[in-house]
Nucleic acid binder design. Structure first.
Lengths: 350, 350
DNA sequence: CTAGGTATCCAAAGCCCTTTGCACAACCGC
DNA sequence: GCGGTTGTGCAAAGGGCTTTGGATACCTAG
């Protein structure tokens, strides 16, 4: 009992946060029932204009704002979705996030940022958001492979859209993705036309289908010798892989194709440090066309991915169904990519 | 008729989304009361191990996950906060967002991304999130000035933290910001030590307090002659201002200090085009240390801002109070900046 | 004068969960 | 045996909102 009174009202101590006005307070102050207040605010049923005016005035005076939580509970949906991405500080995902945010905001939805750092545990904790129905849906862009199984189970029960990502055996899914295979093909053709015959390809983790598609498209179009090294889409890994090869006695390739721009940056740095000139000695190609790609020296030849559109399309598609309480159907939206030829590629030396 | 059959048999069709199991369903299936289920799951009160096991098995079988919405309603808080920024595709804010997200996730909070594009209307709609108590707090990083007044009113009532942002006359606020003044000072000292005596300073709009602080710190430490030109933080303005001075008969300065990296890039381009060598003839310094700064040629000497830490600190501070249901006190956290000396600065010629 | 609107408003039933006060046994030491 | 623990589980009271089926009063028409 003493403990209770301690919490109740510590006389000389004002409460940490004053309880905000509820619909009951408004009703009482206006001399009507909560029902009427609700009707005035929502317009769901007609209310006598005089009464309505009185209610509105009280609402203003008390600064009443309906608790969206209660409304959501009653409505059975929150008007919030999640966006699951590995790394918001990667310009590609930032751009994608912007597209997703725009689409969500257009339809009055909020967007919860789920940054996973490719950490399976973190991803799971964020997927809890949808299982506990705190979000009405989820845009899933490139997660950690360990959770694929879990994702699969979720997709049947909850509205999920895949952005720039594919999942083996998940046919029944809503997917918006750039044309990775075509992107790889464009690079393959470009390097081939420049006379390159031996290329170092820095891929991402094999579990990510998008990366696999890029590599496949490239190999198919290039038709030369391809040395493959597996990285993790981070700048450091591009640097490390190339530096290691150089140490071990030479690259033995006239070009490097990195599966994303960040790794290309890393490769560029390693090459430059080793005294090699780009594109004089070695050509470098990236993928994504993040902003820095055109600002770096030399400007990076890369495949432009419509990151913004991918995010926007995936989200808009998802919401089209979520907002009607439906589970989205299987459908695929493949967005075109383009090759941006810049200064980092040149005809093969020799 | 055709339309309906298109949507599958509608008469006795299952609903679009099956109603998920509630605590009542679990209780009924396990032959206990909802109370007991709650206790089993929360551990708030001891439950007979045999009963608990039975409940847990039913929970698994039904795939029951408590509706976080109901829990939040009852608890009076949602464990979600908002992050309001102008542009997530700007690398600085993406980094800041990452810090904020990390801090939030560490404490089990979700983060709603509020991207405003400097649009006052959009900002207001997002501030509704906090007024309707859908978020427990808000990290506010650089909003549109029109809403300052509104922000001011909010700060008294709701938990809000300012990130890398200052507001005139808003003393009673929780603020985390980089030490802009010190950054300017570092640059001032650096150029002074290199023997520069006349410097062209490209500032940002005077309305932004952070830019003003940078300039003030610089002037104080440099103690030489400073020519000031006002830009707008964009690359083009850096180019334009320098090009114009060169046309009008010479720079008459041995160094340029731009208030951010983008303007420094512009300045660099203008100088190079005019046949001047950097840093041979003129030294150039930027501010922010965005990625491209180290990749440009020559690599840019600049002030590194801890964007990640600013986001993280602002959020962690906010949550420290929010998680206890308190309104955060006025406090200021100034984070240290560092000077990155790279290839764009050298001793003054002559 | 009554049947059938129409305009207004309210009571009560949820939405799904957690918390708290009790009830009921079974058991303890004295 | 008696007051007093422990262990175990339930009923009921919210938390703040929306929705829905009346209730009430007042009218209009037949």
């Amino acid at each position: 009992m003493t403990r209770e009174s301690h919490g109740q009202h510590r006389a000389d101590d004002r409460p940490a946060v004053r309880r905000p006005a509820s619909i009951k307070d408004v009703a009482a102050a206006a001399g009507v029932s909560p029902t009427t207040v609700s009707h005035v605010l929502s317009g769901n049923r007609p209310v006598n204009e005089q009464t309505a005016a009185r209610v509105r005035s009280v609402v203003n005076r008390l600064g009443y704002v309906p608790a969206s939580l209660a409304r959501s509970l009653q409505a059975g949906s929150t008007s919030v979705i999640g966006l699951l991405i590995p790394d918001i500080s990667n310009a590609f995902f930032a751009e994608l996030a912007k597209g997703a945010e725009d689409a969500a905001h257009d339809l009055g939805y909020g967007l919860i940022l789920c940054n996973t750092e490719f950490d399976a545990e973190r991803e799971d904790s964020y997927l809890g958001l949808i299982r506990s129905r705190f979000v009405d849906g989820m845009v899933y862009a490139s997660g950690s492979s360990p959770s694929r199984r879990r994702l699969e189970a979720l997709m049947g029960k909850f509205p999920i859209a895949l952005a720039d990502e594919e999942v083996d055996g998940l046919e029944r899914a809503l997917i918006a993705t750039a044309d990775h295979e075509a992107g790889g093909r464009l690079v393959g053709e470009h390097l081939r036309e420049l006379g390159h015959r031996r290329v170092l390809m820095l891929t991402g983790p094999r579990a990510l289908r998008s990366g696999v598609a890029r590599a496949a498209g490239f190999v198919r179009a290039f038709r030369g010798h391809v040395v493959e090294r597996v990285g993790d889409f981070k700048e450091a890994s591009g640097y490390r892989l190339v530096a290691k090869l150089l140490e071990e006695g030479g690259l033995d390739c006239t070009a490097v194709f990195a599966a994303n721009d960040l790794m290309a940056f890393g490769a560029l740095a390693a090459l430059t440090e080793a005294g090699l000139s780009v594109p004089g000695d070695v050509s470098v190609v990236g993928f994504d066309d993040i902003r820095a790609a055109s600002q770096i020296n030399p400007p990076l030849t890369t495949v432009h991915q419509p990151a913004y559109d991918v995010g926007r399309t995936a989200t808009a598609q998802l919401l089209q169904y979520v907002s009607r309480g439906e589970v989205p159907p299987a459908s695929r939206h493949t967005l075109p990519v383009t090759l941006k030829v810049r200064g980092s590629t040149a005809p093969a030396a020799g």
